[in-house]
């Protein structure tokens, strides 16, 4: 008996150690990024990479935000941060709205070929970005949207619809069709049913779609670097330029601060919306 419990204990210890190692692999670099961003450049050159900063020095953050050089310009990340926002927010809202309508139609208003259409839309989830780079560039030029924020929004909306449609369709499939029938007899039309019956039920899946789309579009680098112009680059491209632009020595503290700034919005979205996400899921689960 005792040997069994001993082996069980060893087993448990092994897994906990393994998990700790994985956690460290993720948290270690983050720790280095954060501590480095608060150090002065002298301290970085002379000190230990793992040491805590002597004092909290926020100058690297200020510089990264407002005066670091990205290529020829030296305005920091701020203008690109807002560029990203101008791309992400419309693309996110449009793709979620279209996905919701698509999902509503594909789950509740089946028509001839609707399953084929859904399959074709799903196919969009599997197309790698690189494959469409050239044709999409041609298309954007033809539409007169090359190097514009609108062009980037369009690309992200089109790519996002495949995913948001999948989310909403699979969520709405679980809502009984009798609700639609009841509402039709009550005199509600297509959009009235969507607004009064389906949208109020959709909080959890809207949150899922928002988190997904925000993360995807905010973190996108490839479309951002290819389809943007000098004034419309998103923050991921700016971060790359910032790190690759050196005036004299490498300013690791500014690079690290810039990287954290670029990652911050997605973290905030997870922390804020994630709470509603879990709440929404459990509320749905308990409903009789």
């Amino acid at each position: 008996m005792s040997s069994l419990t001993l082996s069980k204990k060893l087993y448990k210890a092994f897994f906990i150690t393994l998990l700790l190692v994985f956690a460290l692999a993720y948290l270690g670099p983050l720790y280095v990024m954060l501590t480095t961003s608060f150090k002065g450049i002298e301290e970085i050159r002379n000190g230990n990479i793992l040491a805590l900063p002597d004092a909290l020095n926020g100058s690297a953050w200020v510089k990264a935000w407002s005066s670091a050089c990205t290529g020829g310009d030296c305005f920091g990340l701020a203008p690109y941060f807002w560029n990203s926002m101008r791309i992400v927010i419309p693309a996110l809202l449009i793709s979620t709205a279209v996905g919701a309508l698509n999902g509503y139609v594909l789950s509740q208003w089946r028509f001839k070929g609707s399953n084929f259409l859904f399959g074709a839309l799903l196919f969009g989830c599997f197309i790698p970005f690189q494959v469409i780079l050239l044709p999409m560039a041609k298309l954007l030029a033809w539409l007169g949207l090359a190097n514009t924020v609108t062009g980037l929004v369009l690309v992200h909306v089109i790519y996002g619809i495949a995913f948001t449609t999948l989310f909403f369709r699979n969520y709405y499939v679980g809502i009984p069709n009798e609700l639609v029938r009841a509402a039709r007899l009550d005199g509600a039309g297509f959009f009235a049913i969507f607004r009064h019956v389906f949208l109020p039920l959709s909080t959890p899946i809207i949150v899922v779609s928002v988190i997904w789309q925000f993360t995807q579009i905010w973190n996108d680098f490839l479309f951002g670097v290819v389809y943007s112009g000098p004034g419309t680059q998103p923050i991921t491209v700016a971060l790359n330029n910032l790190v690759n632009t050196t005036m004299g020595g490498k300013e690791y503290n500014v690079d690290m601060a810039a990287a954290v700034i670029a990652a911050l919005p997605t973290l905030v979205v997870y922390i804020v919306a994630g709470k509603y996400f879990v709440r929404g899921l459990t509320a749905g689960a308990v409903k009789g």
């Binding site: 029938r181 009841a182 005199g187 009064h196 409903k287």
Partner: peptide, 20 residues
Amino acid sequence: SPKERDIAMVFQSYALYPTM
């Protein structure tokens, strides 16, 4: 269409609007 028929229906699953 159903709404023009002046008919009301009670469903097996009741089909009450869950958020209302």
